[in-house]
Design a protein around this nucleic acid. Structure first.
Length: 132
DNA sequence: CGTGTGACCGGCG
DNA sequence: ACGCCGGCCACAC
């Protein structure tokens, strides 16, 4: 992300720390959902994708997470794992163990880079947020 | 405007 | 059980 890295010179605007367009991207939608994940729970890329209506494109969610690190407010990306509860994105954190440590600090048990009893702590946005 | 790519997922051999 | 393949689609070159 960082469209800012493309200064066309014609737009010398200052770094604009604040959101320039807010709902501009699909990424923001993903971040919003992820930020709603309660502490001690976790969800999967596919579940988020399904909630957003792009079920068959869970990859996009992962893609969004790749840019989540620069998002503000911070996005608890560690609460998003693949459908098997495996910490497939751990290598994208500052350290390979950070993701597991964060989860553990929230009471989630992680064994061998996989969340224990994933089905129990699984937080499905489609069900939890539903539509009301 | 074309092309490559990916922290996924489900299906099939 | 395991690996491979195709789909899907927003985004950066």
């Amino acid at each position: 992300m960082k469209r800012i890295s493309k200064p066309s010179a014609s737009k010398p605007t200052i770094a604009i720390p604040a959101k320039e367009k807010r709902k501009d991207s699909f990424f923001e939608s993903v971040y919003d959902v992820v930020r709603l994940i309660p502490k001690g729970r976790a969800t999967s890329y596919g579940a988020i994708a399904e909630y957003l209506g792009t079920k068959l494109s869970a990859r996009m969610v992962g893609w969004a997470m790749n840019a989540a690190g620069a998002a503000y407010p911070p996005v608890p990306a560690h609460r998003v794992v693949n459908r098997n509860g495996m910490l497939s994105g751990r290598h994208h954190f500052a350290t390979p163990t950070l993701m597991a440590d964060l989860l553990k600090s929230e009471g989630i048990k992680v064994k061998n880079d996989t969340i224990v009893n994933f089905e129990k702590i699984f937080w499905d946005p489609v069900k939890e947020l539903d539509l009301s």
